[in-house]
Amino acid sequence: MLQHFGPQVINLLAAVLLLLAFAMLSQRRILSLINLFAAQGFVLFLSTALVAALTDQKHLYVSAAVTLVLKVTLLPWILHRLIRRLNVKWDVETLINIPTTMLVGILLVILAFNLAAPISQLAGTVTRSTLGIALASMLLSFMMMITRSKAVPQVIGFLSMENGLFFAATAAVYGMPMVVELGVALDVLVAALILGIFIFEIRERFDTLDTRHLEKLKEH
C-alpha cells in the first residue's frame, strides 16, 4: 500500500509545492505570504517523512523533525514577530503585474523541467520527475524576490528558495547525508537572523522597507 501510493503522494506533494510557489508569486499580503511559506514547510515535512518511511532511512526522520520545528514553526514565528515589530501589514507592491509574473513563471517551469530532465535521468528513483518541479519552485521563489520591492517578501522568497532545494534533495534523490542537511538547516536559520537584522538596518537608514531606496547608495 505504502509502496504503491508513496511515490504518487510524493508527486502530489511536488505539485502542491509548485502550487504554493505560484500562490506566493501571486499573493499581495505579507501575512498570507508567511502562512504560505509555513504551508510550504509543512509540505516539505510531509514529503520528507514519507520518503523516510518509503526508504526506511532513519536520519530522514530527523530531517523531517528539523523541518517541522524550523520551517513550520520557528521561522514563520520569527517572521510574524518581525512584521509585528516593524508594523508592516499592508499589501505588497509588485513591480510587474501579477498575471505577467505568472506567465513568466510558467515559462520558467517549462525551462526548469527540461533543464532538469537529463539530471533526473541519472537519479534512479521513481519520483525523479519531481526534480524539475523542485528546480522550478526554486526559480519561482527567486523571481518573487526580483518582483517585490519590499524587504520582507524578499526574505521570504529567499527562504522558500531553500525549500525548493531541500525538496530536490529529499524527494527526487531520496535524501542527502545527514551532515549536509543539518548544515543547510543551520545556514537557513543564520540567514534568517542576518536578514532580520538587515531589514531593521534598512528601516533605520531609510525609514522604509522599500529596497528600491537602496539605489541611493549608488555613487554618482
Binding site: 502550487l19 498575471p99 505568472m102 510558467i106 517549462i110 523541467f113 518541479i133
Partner: peptide
C-alpha cells in the same frame, strides 16, 4: 477581477503542464 481570473487561467494551464511533467 481580471487578475483573479487571469490567475485561474494560468493555474489551469499549469495543470496541463504538470500533467505532462509528472504523469
Amino acid at each position: 477581477a481580471p487578475e483573479f481570473l487571469g490567475t485561474a487561467f494560468l493555474l489551469a494551464v499549469l495543470a496541463m503542464l504538470v500533467h505532462v511533467m509528472l504523469e
